[in-house]
Design a protein around this nucleic acid. Structure first.
Length: 103
DNA sequence: ATGTTGACCGACT
DNA sequence: GAGTCGGCCAACA
């Protein structure tokens, strides 16, 4: 059996996040079902190709879950700004405004 | 099997 | 607001 099957559910959810919106790891995990936020994080970390909009997944604090200096962090921020998302002070994203409310 | 780590979360101080 | 702590559970050494 392939454990990547578990990841596929998560990726499917991420793929459903509309452009210009963001979702938290907990949210993704909840929609995927039978999944914890940590697993969502693992799924993103294991992601090598860009066939899913991984950059639209952030933590519950509305921040990018990468170290500041990380290359991935800069990339994620760039991609999000490209979609029209405005970062507040401290690199924060207003989840009330940009948060994905589901389908 | 055990111990550590992690793209997390919520409650608490 | 920031900092700490425990829980969570899969992946890894």
């Amino acid at each position: 059996m392939s454990p990547s099957l578990l990841y596929q559910r998560i990726y499917d959810v991420v793929r459903h996040i509309p452009r210009g919106r963001v979702a938290t790891y907990g949210q993704v995990a909840a929609y995927a079902g039978r999944c914890t936020p940590r697993q969502a994080g693992y799924a993103m970390a294991a992601l090598k190709n860009d066939d899913v909009p991984w950059h639209r997944v952030i933590n519950s604090r509305g921040r990018i879950s990468f170290p500041e200096n990380s290359r991935g962090a800069k990339e994620q921020k760039r991609l999000l700004e490209e979609e029209g998302i405005i970062f507040g002070p401290g690199g924060r994203i207003d989840l009330e405004h940009y948060g994905w409310k589901g389908t």
